[in-house]
Design a protein around this nucleic acid. Structure first.
Length: 572
RNA sequence: GGGCUUGUGGGGUAGUGGAUAUCCUUUCGGCCUUCGGAGCCGAACACCCGGGUUCGAAUCCCGGCAAGCCCUCCA
């Protein structure tokens, strides 16, 4: 990517000296990305001080600009200066770099910064549903992009093994005889088996006063630190988590670390937070003894600006333990990103205020996503109105299998199944991550299973196509000679390949993971156009250079797919 | 009641001060004597409404309208 940086610098220098020549050296100017040029300079701001029409300004500057180096041309259009990068230099520099760096192309050198990405952290009371699936997919994609941006990344799941919900679950497992649990056709997987107990226990609690009392008693023992109850809750949570991990690994999400909420009670750090907060000037105590912080001066608005951090009996709350957790996290990492549902927005703001009060110099950087709903409304585990991620995976894989069978009867059964899995899962991940996280998403089967156009399989298809050509080509020599790649489709494809580093920057540093699928589609589409327009295997003297371009496209697509947590099948 | 977020062709979506508004899907028309048609080419169709700021607004400000989320001694 040295070429683009050099080009940007040379454009600035060229405009600067042109302005000097006109006696306008005081003028400020900016450069911007553009569809019409490799780099553009708008001249509207100068129109005011120079008292000339922008078109005239642009024309006069263009007249004085001397092209050279990476700058091939300048043109004044509609009050803009449009600069063109030297295509030969772009081709040679980009292809040489991709060939040399391979899988590493686009990555930045290590920054020496440890960044922690907390994601998923769903309540371990049932299987992951499609609504929540946005979390691991966004979190994992971000983590992969950050790693390529040079960060040392650790991913982490915060396990909520404390509180009413997990106690209800545990009670339901320990007290409802297996035969009595009302079951649908659940798959043989711990999270699916156990959620039936959870639902059943919830229903019993609603209908039966005695059950309600027994669960309350269990909760009281839990909060009093009863080792037996805490231990049994921990065990059911672990069981449930095994099921969740299995699903996550199906979609290529593997987390580095699991941190248990109950540990912050056990090691006394949550208590510690309470004691420190009590001494703060924002702290107050309700008549019945509950402690709170008044966060009105921190910009918290609404009916209630109070942030309660102990119950009236002095026990800690979720938010208190979350504070202890964040202090712990900051001891292990330089930066922390939290991928959270939009319902956590206020809580996250309160958390940050409390951290500020505690004197923490680090703050988590939250990334929120809107919930996915069904056309018929909100998803709910308790009501059973859900599409489980496991079911979506099965459906997508089976659709992919049908497609592959239609066109590749030559492949052995086992191979078809393997590829179907890669494609089905790719379709899911791509489809979920392609939409900006703050946009609400309505889950529709026909979108989730889309294999055409702006889809995961489209990217994978182009990768497979490139692989197929390289297979057929046999031996060839790398050739990055720009004289051999002068077709407009070739140049356009190279321009797309050269944009990878910038795409990673947007996705990682600017936290816009949804731009990676768009970038991948741009590359894939440029390749398909090149493919339709330019012969490769029968290309005569251009053959080596074109094969090199195909190989470079394949490399970039493979890297993009890796960022998206998708497989790069060599045939499909 | 208050706060946060979103509103772009028929459906979905990119774009946070700049040019002729991106891409997918859909519909219609074309492309299989070329290396994989999960493809390519062409056409149609859009910035929620009303004010304001600015040389210039999809983008910023104010006021509406609509959708989602939040305002637990829940997690």
């Amino acid at each position: 990517m040295k070429i683009r940086n050099r080009f940007n610098a040379e454009v600035r220098a060229a405009v600067g000296s042109a302005l000097a020549e006109l006696g306008w050296q005081d003028e400020e100017f900016q450069t911007e990305a553009s569809d019409m040029a490799d780099l553009a300079v708008p001249c509207f701001a100068m129109a005011k001080t120079r008292r000339l029409p922008p078109k005239e300004i642009a024309a006069r500057i263009a007249d004085k600009v001397t092209v050279g180096g990476t700058v091939a041309a300048v043109e004044a259009v509609n009050g803009y200066l449009n600069f063109t990068i030297d295509p030969a230099m772009l081709v040679e520099s980009t292809l040489t770099e991709i060939v040399e760096r391979g899988d590493d192309y686009g990555s930045l050198p290590a920054k020496g910064i440890k960044i922690n990405v907390e994601h998923t952290s769903t309540n371990p009371t049932g299987p992951i549903h499609v609504g929540r699936a946005r979390n691991p997919i966004i979190g994992d994609t971000l983590s992969r992009c950050l790693a390529r941006c040079g960060y040392e990344v650790e991913t982490e799941y915060y396990v909520n093994d404390v509180g009413k919900q997990v106690v209800i679950l545990t009670w339901g497992i320990d007290n409802i005889p297996d035969g009595e649990v009302e079951r649908k056709e659940e798959r043989d997987k711990p999270d699916h088996r156990l959620v039936a107990n959870y639902r059943h226990a919830n229903r019993m609690m609603e209908e039966d006063e005695d059950v309600r009392e027994r669960i309350s008693e269990m909760l009281r023992r839990f909060e009093a630190g009863d080792a037996e109850v805490i231990g049994s809750v921990r065990r059911t949570t672990e069981l449930m988590l095994d099921g969740l991990k299995e699903t996550l690994s199906e979609i290529n999400v593997v987390l580095d670390r699991y941190t248990w909420e109950s540990d912050f009670i056990a090691d006394g750090s949550a208590r510690d937070v309470v004691e420190r907060l009590k001494t703060s000037e924002y702290a107050g105590q309700a008549d019945d003894g509950a402690w709170y912080l008044d966060l009105e001066s921190f910009g918290i608005r609404g009916k209630n600006t109070k942030f309660t951090f102990t119950r009236s009996d002095g026990t800690t709350l979720y938010t208190t333990r979350d504070l202890a957790y964040h202090l712990d996290k900051f001891r292990r990492a330089d930066e922390a990103v939290n991928v959270l549902g939009e319902d956590q927005k206020l809580g996250s703001k309160q958390l940050c205020s409390a951290l500020q009060i505690l004197g923490s110099e680090k703050m988590p950087d939250p990334m929120f996503y809107s919930f996915v709903s069904l056309p018929e409304g909100k998803m709910s585990t308790r009501r059973g109105v859900v599409v489980y991620l496991d079911d979506l995976i099965d459906e997508a894989v089976s659709r992919a299998y049908d497609e592959i069978r239609k066109r590749r009867s030559d492949l052995p059964e086992e191979r078809m199944r393997g590829i179907a899995r890669q494609i089905g899962i790719g379709a899911i991940r791509y489809n979920i991550v392609r939409v900006s996280p703050d946009k609400q998403l309505v889950f529709r089967w026909e979108d989730a299973l889309n294999f055409d156009g702006n889809s995961g399989p489209y990217l994978q298809y182009v990768h497979a196509r490139a692989c197929s050509m390289l297979r057929k080509a046999g031996e060839y020599n790398h050739d990055c000679d720009p004289g051999m790649l002068t077709d407009e489709y070739e140049i356009r494809l190279v321009r797309a390949l050269a944009g990878f580093e910038e795409a990673l920057y947007r996705a990682g540093e600017q936290r816009k993971v949804n731009t990676i699928p768009a970038y991948g589609h741009e590359v894939a589409s440029a390749f398909n156009q090149f493919y339709a327009a330019v012969p490769v295997l029968a290309a005569g003297e251009n053959r080596d250079a074109r094969l090199t371009l195909v190989e470079c496209t394949r490399t970039v697509l493979k890297n993009v797919l890796d960022c998206l947590g998708m497989e790069a099948p060599e045939e499909m």
